[in-house]
């Protein structure tokens, strides 16, 4: 494989864990807050927003995020509609793209834990934040793994998609073809991986029940 092909692969492999970690850091407290702070219709709206990746075309979220970021000064505009993002920008985009996939399994896992466990923790002097760190996170560890896996696959897909756009705008001929090939392959592979990971709902339910 030539150089143009290796770069997006390298980027995807190296940076998707970073963006996944970022997605997890945002999603876990968000899901925890959703469990406690939202009741009634607000909870339903939140669930729809979080579930949107299942409804919206898969690329929509990341695409809009990329457009939004590209219009800023951090982007390097070379006159075309599509621009390359800096590496940091790409990572952020991938994280944004993965977040909606990471949060629902965590939310489901928090909700699956018996309410009594939180009550027991509360009556043992643990406030909400303490419960999050010392009970919720350790208890949903299996769901974290699944969420991380889905998030990672989605990040790689985002990197692949960005490589496709990059290739279209910046190069031509054989280089472009091989870069698009690489991007396309990454995209497809990771989408399949996501599909497989999401197939098994038992693994998404993290918290062991009593």
């Amino acid at each position: 494989m030539d150089q143009a092909c290796v770069e997006p692969v390298w980027l995807g492999v190296l940076l998707s864990p970073v963006s996944t970690a970022a997605a997890l850091v945002v999603s876990a407290p968000m899901a925890w807050l959703l469990v406690w702070e939202l009741r009634g219709w607000r909870a339903r709206v939140a669930a729809v927003v979080l579930g949107s990746p299942l409804v919206l075309p898969l690329l929509a979220v990341g695409l809009y995020a990329m457009l939004a970021l590209a219009s800023g000064p951090a982007s390097c505009n070379q006159g075309g509609a599509w621009v390359f993002l800096s590496v940091a920008g790409k990572t952020l985009c991938a994280a944004l793209y993965a977040t909606p996939f990471v949060a629902p399994p965590l939310l489901a896992a928090f909700q699956a834990v018996d309410q009594r466990v939180w009550e027991a923790a509360a009556t043992l002097r643990a406030d909400r934040a303490d419960q999050f760190w010392s009970v919720a996170l350790p208890m949903v560890r299996p769901a974290m793994l699944v969420a991380g896996g889905v998030g990672c696959a989605q990040s790689v897909a985002a990197f692949g998609a960005m490589a496709l756009f990059d290739a279209r705008e910046t190069c031509d001929g054989a280089e472009c073809a091989s870069m698009m090939n690489a991007g396309g392959l990454i995209l497809m592979g990771s989408l399949i991986a996501t599909a497989i990971l999401r197939l098994d709902p038992a693994r998404v339910r993290g918290g062991q029940r009593e």
Binding site: R116, V117, A120, A121, P138, M139, R141, E210
Partner: peptide, 11 residues
């Protein structure tokens, strides 16, 4: 508090 189902922390 002691609950009917013990509610221990499984982790």
């Amino acid at each position: 508090c002691v609950f009917q189902d013990a509610a221990l922390f499984p982790h």
